[in-house]
Structure formats: C-alpha cells, structure tokens
C-alpha cells in the first residue's frame, strides 16, 4: 500500500500555488482574483502544516502561523469584499479593466 509522505503534500501545495497565480493573472473579475489569492494563502497553509507533521525540526510554530494566516485571510476577505461592494456601487461593475480612470 502506498503511504502518503511530505512530498505529496508539497506537490499539492505547489499545484495550488500555481493555480492561484494562474487565476490572478487570467481573471478580470476582482472577486476571481481574490479567489486566486485564497488559493495561494491555502497553499502556504498546506506547506506549513505538512512540515510540522513530517519534519523533526519543525514542531508547532508552523501550525500557529497557519492559524494566523487563516485569520488574516478572513480579515482580508472582509475588507476586500467591502471595497468590491463600494466599487460596484460607484461603477456598477467589479471588472478590473473597466476601473481604469486612473492611469499614466
């Protein structure tokens, strides 16, 4: 039977990171970009928790940071959605390409 080790977790995290970056680059919708940000944040969380589980030198600090990151992601999402709603009220869209009044 195949056992799951650290490598598998790191691969999952790397795939999540890549998917998140790809989402950020390709999406034009502000909410879509934020979903990409969440993917990248969670890839960091998978890394941190997996290191704590499998490596002798890492024990608990990573899990603490993972909890901090979860809280930060929630706070960031709250502010981000607030800003998106504000933009929608002003421009009636959350497309980042339409919001192009400021340039140069």
């Amino acid at each position: 039977m195949m056992s799951i080790g650290l490598t598998e977790y790191l691969v999952v995290a790397a795939v999540l990171f890549g998917a998140g970056i790809f989402t950020m680059i390709t999406k034009r919708n502000a909410i879509g970009i934020l979903i990409g940000v969440e993917l990248v944040l969670n890839s960091a969380n998978v890394n941190l928790v997996a290191f704590d589980r499998y490596l002798e030198r890492c024990r608990i600090d990573g899990q603490i940071l993972a909890l901090v990151v979860i809280v930060l992601a929630a706070a960031e999402a709250a502010i981000a959605v607030g800003i998106c709603i504000n933009l929608y009220k002003n421009l009636a869209t959350v497309d980042v390409d339409t919001a192009a009044k400021l340039r140069g």
Partner: peptide, 27 residues
C-alpha cells in the same frame, strides 16, 4: 473606490506570495 481596489488587489497578491515564500523558508 478604484484606487482602493487596485491597492487592495496588489497588496493581497504580494502578501500571499510572501506567505508562500515564508512557508518554504520554514520548511
């Protein structure tokens, strides 16, 4: 509204990339 959206998206992306780097350093 537009300025804060751009600032927030840029900041969120940079912070997320930074956290991924930190998780690797920790490992």
């Amino acid at each position: 509204a537009e300025a804060s959206l751009k600032y927030m998206i840029f900041g969120a992306v940079c912070a997320a990339v930074m956290l991924y780097g930190i998780s690797l350093i920790y490992g």
